[in-house]
Simulated scan of single mutants.
Amino acid sequence: MCDESFRYPDFVFAALRDDAGERRVAIESKGDQLAGNLDTEYKRELLETLTKAYSKNAGTKAGELPMTAKSVEYEAAVVLFSDMLVKLPVLING
């Protein structure tokens, strides 16, 4: 079920923080008509898994590649177009 187009999320950006930390965000945007379909839900679950795996509190386990920067937050999400104005500022600011 892995979609070839998912190798490239719609948006990836980094936001610098006052304390010199960094927040990395990946967003997969979807039209409202795609809410709840199998592909959207697959991507939502995948991005939630990535967010948990690379969050600051996740820790590194044997065989995993750690994030190299000291203070990096990571979050990935599927955002419907109708939720973009509400969810985008939250994703940017954390």
Results as ranks from 00 to 15, higher is better:
V86A: 14
V78W: 02
Y74G: 02
E41M: 11
N57C: 06
R7E: 13
N37E: 12
P9C: 05
K56W: 01
D19P: 03
E4H: 12
A69Q: 06
F13K: 12
E22S: 15
T68I: 11
I92T: 07
L80P: 04
L34V: 01
A35S: 11
A20Y: 15
A14L: 15
A20F: 11
M1G: 13
T49H: 04
L46M: 10
A20K: 15
K70M: 09
A62F: 05
R24H: 10
N37Q: 08
T60W: 02
D18W: 06
F81Y: 15
K87L: 15
V25F: 00
D83W: 06
D3T: 13
L47R: 08
Y8S: 09
E73A: 10
R17Y: 03
Y8R: 13
A62T: 04
A20H: 14
L91Q: 02
L16Y: 13
D3Y: 08
S5H: 08
G94Y: 04
D18T: 09
A58F: 03
A53E: 11
A76M: 00
V25R: 05
L80Y: 07
L46S: 04
S29E: 08
F6A: 10
P89M: 14
V79C: 07
R44I: 00
G21T: 08
D10G: 07
R44W: 00
A58T: 13
N37T: 05
P9V: 03
E28Q: 15
A14V: 15
D32P: 05
F81I: 02
S82L: 01
P89K: 12
A15R: 14
A35L: 09
S82W: 04
N37L: 02
E28G: 02
A77E: 01
F13Q: 03
D10Y: 09
R24N: 04
E22T: 11
S55E: 15
S29V: 13
I92L: 04
V78Y: 01
K61M: 05
A69G: 08
A62G: 06
A20D: 11
G31I: 15
V72W: 06
E75R: 11
D3N: 07
A77F: 00
T60L: 07
G59Q: 04
A15K: 11
L88H: 00
S82H: 08
D19C: 08
A62H: 05
L47V: 01
L91M: 12
A35I: 08
K43E: 13
G36C: 01
K61Q: 07
T60F: 00
T40F: 05
E75S: 07
L65A: 04
L46C: 10
K52T: 12
M67F: 07
D32L: 06
D83E: 14
L88C: 02
A14G: 09
E64Q: 09
D10F: 05
Y8T: 10
C2T: 11
G21C: 11
T68G: 14
T40L: 02
R7Q: 14
V79K: 12
A58I: 09
L85A: 14
L34N: 10
K70A: 12
F81T: 09
G21S: 15
E41R: 12
I27D: 00
L80Q: 08
A77I: 00
G94K: 07
